[in-house]
Design a binder for these strands. Sequence first.
DNA 1: ATTAAAATGTAGCATAGGCTACAAAAAATC
DNA 2: GATTTTTTGTAGCCTATGCTACATTTTAAT
Lengths: 154, 154
Amino acid sequence: MIKKADLAPPPAELPGEAVQARRFEKARSAQASAVLEDYVELIDDLLANGGEARPTDIARRLGVTHATAIKTITRLKREGLATSKLYRGVFLTPEGHGLADRVRARHRLVVDLLRAVGVPEQCAELDAEGIEHHVSDAALDAFARFLKGWGPLP
Amino acid sequence: MIKKADLAPPPAELPGEAVQARRFEKARSAQASAVLEDYVELIDDLLANGGEARPTDIARRLGVTHATAIKTITRLKREGLATSKLYRGVFLTPEGHGLADRVRARHRLVVDLLRAVGVPEQCAELDAEGIEHHVSDAALDAFARFLKGWGPLP
DNA sequence: ATTAAAATGTAGCATAGGCTACAAAAAATC
DNA sequence: GATTTTTTGTAGCCTATGCTACATTTTAAT
């Protein structure tokens, strides 16, 4: 028996759909790592400045309860990005530290680009927090090139 | 009795934390509407082009199963953005249609800006999908101004 | 040293957003 | 018109991320 699907393999329709679907899939996966990236960057900041990263501080800075923070820290440990012991602060593994560095560099680049195209500083900081997780390496390269030919920010 | 908190109301420390926390809260709330925005824009596209928006089409385009799509459509209806009847397609309420228009305009502006600063077209489309949900109106204004003084894209 | 406060951890609940598997209706084919 | 395919809908499960409430431990104050 011959089914409809056997006769008409649409050669131009499915690709379009598939491409679009992949866009959304990429955005979803970026979002999945966004929270972890925020935590890692914040922990790295706290360790560098204050010397220790306590769950309560992390929670306050992120605007969540300590219970939520602790749960996510557990996930960080599971993913090999952080370590901690009972009633002690949180620390980053080498992987976590590396990720924090990349995230911070990306954040700065995004803020600088936003400001370069005229977004007010406060607004640039606010928006960058959500935007940064979705900027690909290729786009980051473009941002860097653009900023180089732009001179110092006002 | 005098407690520690009564003596030392830190006047410079809490604001910094609070500001940072608000950044993250804003990013989280933007993310919460991101999925709804994507659905509404896609449904509007399908209605404008193909004439009808069926759950299966929506699912295929978004790269999810039809069960997931239907569940989210239920949420769209609950939020007053869409309507549908059993075994019929999905339609947008006036609110949904308005949202779709705003989302589409924003998407286009983000893609154009990315391309204007040198991001390759394909990459601009990919990245915009995640970025757009986090671009504030103030930033959009800046984007529009920047593009106006930039001339047509290559 | 005792007591009070703060920090940490655990348990249980809710929602959003994925999935697979099954059931029923509509549309297409023969 | 009967049969097959497609579409639609439902149910149940999972993970991530939030929350509150309670228990425990550490730290600070008296």
